[in-house]
Design a protein around this nucleic acid. Sequence first.
DNA 1: TTTTTTTTGTACCGTATCGCACATAAATAG
DNA 2: CTATTTATGTGCGATACGGTACAAAAAAAA
Lengths: 210, 210
Amino acid sequence: MKTETKRGRPRKFDEDVTLDRIMLVFWRQGYAATSLDQIAEATGLNRPSLYAAFGSKKEMYLKVIGRFADQMQAHLHDAGLTASGLHPRLKAIMTAAIDLYCGKSSLCNAAYGCLAISTLTTEVADDPDFKSMMAHVVERMDQGFADLIREETKGLVPEANLRFTAQHLSLILHGISVRARTGESRTALQELAEAAVDRLVPETASQTVV
Amino acid sequence: MKTETKRGRPRKFDEDVTLDRIMLVFWRQGYAATSLDQIAEATGLNRPSLYAAFGSKKEMYLKVIGRFADQMQAHLHDAGLTASGLHPRLKAIMTAAIDLYCGKSSLCNAAYGCLAISTLTTEVADDPDFKSMMAHVVERMDQGFADLIREETKGLVPEANLRFTAQHLSLILHGISVRARTGESRTALQELAEAAVDRLVPETASQTVV
DNA sequence: TTTTTTTTGTACCGTATCGCACATAAATAG
DNA sequence: CTATTTATGTGCGATACGGTACAAAAAAAA
């Protein structure tokens, strides 16, 4: 399998870097309030190049949301590996999420909360494509927490209870995202999250959850 | 004090009814995606009348948010009066909020979640006026819960703990709003809320909270 | 070189946007 | 009746919007 050199004029931009720049614009302003001119300015590209590479504004946004979900999942997964035991791992994940929501991550340096919660939620009521994307993102987050709990409690917790607790953890994170974007301090959110985890899962892994 | 009859041509519309109609448009589409033509169509007024009565689009939106916060607070307060004891009252409030978020209230008949969480959150990062309004709305919700807990536990719970639990309850409601707009069923949200309240406050009022 | 393929950038199209000017209408005050 | 005050509705104006046509540019292929 040889690396066939592409014909035609080469691109002057990196697709991933560009998507990250587009992401930041949508993250700050939301979908509806963002114009293609702003995206063009933020990326250094002109509109025809943007359309050729990513399609319409809506497609750009959906691509960005999907990319964000991927990066978010990887980020939180990594954070969950820095500790051991259900309770400590959950706390590590919460901390990582709060840092990200408050602009303390490589992804974003402003307190914009979660991209999906902060901007996609608005568009959901009037557009089925956005709505199913939103449901997908939330479902992924629930799944992530469920997988972690399942792994750490190996059969000790009924699947139904486990999924329920996972939903509850997602819920907490969504609420924290809202407060992060509203301007609440990182330490205040950290306290809230810690208390929430303490109430949801026991300190020692041997106890039954829920 | 006599009812001075106003001079000039009388208005053909009721200001409150009109604001409620404007509210529904913003509730579905959000601030940025809503045009004044859509508002004009929804209210039956033309743009000059709208501007004369409510000012710019931004002022309309802020007025609507304030009105929503008032109505929401009254709605939840009333719901809290239908039961007695901290735990039952909180559950009643949660149920009322979920019904409203899912379109089962006189305010709105569609599952649009909370107007502020669903639409104002997006605008917050780029506009200080919206941001302070959002902080104000969240603060009011925290206050409402704090007042209720304080009233029901009369001095048994330290003010700090009490406020902390109130924030946690608001957080839950914000997360539920997101899921309601995303399409989650009312019963599923009801289960989540009940479990959350069970974990946050004891069943019997005599126990210490948190 | 000539041809083919792909990207770039200018310039544009039709439409929608917010906000307002201005004339008209409907009420009261004198 | 005349003047004044307030609300209505048509219509416009300047701008911004999403999206695209088209020609120039930059690479590989023939």
